[in-house]
């Protein structure tokens, strides 16, 4: 690693925990308002109050989270975030245009969360939807849900969900179910649950059984998001297993929490300055060969 040519800053930036707490509280309050307090079913009208609360609450909460998280991120995390955002948008746009029942728009978010941690994952999710919203306005209000996916994926990685490939789909199922629950009110109150032909077909089935729009969208979210996140988590697990060892070890989070378990273990690994010495394990060597 090269040495900085500039003097270190006298006052290093600190995470703004108050902003993170406020952001989380705003998102939680918005969700509760939409689901519990908002009694009028969207189908009774287009729900001006609910739509506005959903846009401002989820976007504002996401913005506060990002403002609180950014100061605490290292340069290696920051550099990988645009990569995650670009992957989300590029792959998500293709999946959407093909009318698939799943979205595949969180591959970058989960990848960043696994390598750089829950905070970087949450910021990637929120910023991803905010930037995508410029080109696809339907992504914009889902920023808070995407942040939650990044946060949960990072926590799952921290506690070992990516150490074995069979654990990844289990974590994906749980994260997807939570994500689906959060995304459903946004989809309903902002866009009347309009989505791709695939997701709308699922909603239509529940609506034909007499479900209210919010209930039908929630059931669809639980189905589609769970399936989507199972696929995404398995895909990301297989991608990170194939990464060269040095590509994984450049991230302090992945090193410190042994996110990939024995796959990236080296003697002397996990030191604070990031130096790595010693020999690779069989898994790491395999990763190198696959990634080469």
């Amino acid at each position: 690693m090269s040495s900085p040519l500039t003097r270190p800053s006298a006052t290093p930036e600190r995470p703004r925990r108050l902003l993170i707490l406020l952001g989380g509280a705003l998102i939680a309050a918005t969700y509760l308002f939409l689901v519990v307090v908002q009694p009028a079913e969207i189908a009774g009208g287009m729900g001006s109050v609910a739509s506005l609360v959903s846009l401002v609450g989820f976007l504002g909460g996401g913005a506060l989270l990002v403002a609180g998280i950014l100061p605490m991120l290292s340069t290696s995390s920051l550099v990988v975030m645009p990569l995650g955002i670009a992957l989300n948008i590029a792959i998500g746009q293709v999946a959407g245009s093909l009318g698939m029942q799943i979205y595949l728009d969180a591959i970058g978010t989960v990848l960043v969360a696994v390598l750089a941690g829950p905070a970087a994952g949450a910021a990637t999710g929120a910023l991803s939807n905010a930037i995508w919203g410029l080109f696809n306005p339907f992504a914009l209000p889902f920023a808070a849900g995407a942040a939650l996916i990044g946060l949960l994926a990072g926590l799952a990685a921290k506690y070992g969900a990516f150490r074995h490939v069979y654990l990844a789909p289990v974590a994906g199922l749980v994260v997807g179910a939570i994500g689906g629950l959060v995304a459903a009110p946004v989809a309903v109150f902002m866009f009347g649950a309009a989505g791709t032909f695939g997701t709308n077909a699922i909603i239509a089935v529940f609506r034909s059984m007499g479900d209210k729009l919010l209930v039908a969208a929630t059931k669809q979210g639980l189905l589609s998001d769970s399936l989507d996140k199972i696929v995404v988590f398995v895909l990301v697990a297989l991608i990170v297993y194939a990464l060269p060892r040095r590509a994984v070890l450049q991230f302090p989070f992945a090193r410190t929490h042994r996110v990939l378990g024995q796959r990236t273990d080296v003697a002397g690994m996990g030191t604070k300055d990031g130096t790595t010495t010693g020999t690779t394990t069989a898994g790491a060597a395999r990763g190198n060969r696959t990634g080469a």
């Binding site: 690693m1 900085p4 003097r7 006052t11 340069t75 990988v80 990464l243 040095r246 990634g291």
Partner: peptide, 29 residues
């Protein structure tokens, strides 16, 4: 498709990290 894509992008990102650090990106000036 995604595996070589991500590997290539991560290698680029790693190079970029070194260059940014060398130019004082983490400074708050």
């Amino acid at each position: 498709v995604t595996t070589p894509l991500v590997i290539g992008l991560l290698v680029d990102a790693s190079e970029r990290t070194r260059m940014l650090e060398a130019r004082g990106f983490s400074s708050s000036a």
